[in-house]
């Protein structure tokens, strides 16, 4: 099995598809969790929604650490396979390129730029880990008191530079998901001419929900910092 997942082109694509599916589910969970922070942005806890309680629940408990490790593994696998596939694809394309190139009819820009978008996403992820994870779960692991989640969000997004950087990051994620979500169905064989428009519609809805959900937190806290 390991042979097939690493030695076959379709096996490698399956790994990309499954790891991508896992990351999409995590992103949807993370986005839902972040929306609670908006509810607490004015300092109260409507309907019992408490972002700090979620942060405490996902602190350094064994299940949170296990989840973090699995997530990190998924991210690493997705990135490593992306570079392997791209390297092989460039070699297969050959050294001499076409003099004239065009965008073929019906081909999305994102589908041809997934690695570039992925690199932007990884850079954004590095910034995000520096801004939040290193000051919350990591410091707790090192035996220090983690910072308050809502207050950390408030402080970070009162700086317009971070607002711009995070929105660019979310935009790259939007483009990546518009192709990635429907593509993962195609790779496992769940696609046909009837379902392609539906799958692409689902991909656009998922990507837009993720973008709006994450961007809402950034914009809300930035606007609140102005008033």
């Amino acid at each position: 099995m390991s042979c097939f997942l690493s030695n076959s082109s379709l096996g490698r694509k399956l790994v990309m598809s499954v790891s991508g599916c896992f990351l999409v589910l995590f992103i949807l969970f993370h986005m839902s969790m972040n929306l609670v922070a908006i509810a607490n942005a004015w300092g109260n806890h409507p309907f019992g929604l408490n972002y700090d309680a979620i942060c405490e629940f996902l602190g350094t408990n064994w299940y949170a650490l296990a989840g973090t490790l699995v997530l990190a593994f998924g991210v690493v696998v997705h990135i490593v396979y992306a570079f392997i596939l791209t390297f092989q694809n460039r070699r297969a394309r050959g050294n001499v390129r076409y003099e004239v190139t065009v965008t073929e009819k019906g081909v999305d820009w994102a589908s041809k730029n997934m690695l570039v978008l992925g690199i932007v996403i990884v850079l954004g992820l590095a910034l995000h880990l520096f801004n939040f994870w290193s000051k919350m779960q990591l410091v707790e692991l090192l035996g220090h008191e983690p910072e308050n989640g809502v207050e950390l969000i408030r402080e970070t997004f009162s700086n317009w530079i971070y607002v711009v950087l995070y929105l660019v990051w979310f935009a790259a994620l939007w483009f990546h998901l518009t192709h990635g979500v429907w593509s993962m169905f195609q790779t496992v064989g769940w696609g046909n001419d009837i379902w392609y428009p539906r799958l692409k519609c689902i991909a656009n809805i998922v990507a837009t929900l993720v973008f709006l959900g994450f961007a809402a937190v950034v914009v809300t806290f930035f606007v609140l910092s102005l008033v």
């Binding site: 082109s9 694809n89 297969a92 394309r93 073929e104 019906g106 041809k112 997934m114 192709h179 790779t187």
Partner: peptide
């Protein structure tokens, strides 16, 4: 030595 499909759909077009 053919490459890996990334579902761009250019082939179909």
């Amino acid at each position: 030595g053919f490459g890996n499909c990334t579902n761009t759909g250019a082939c179909q077009a």
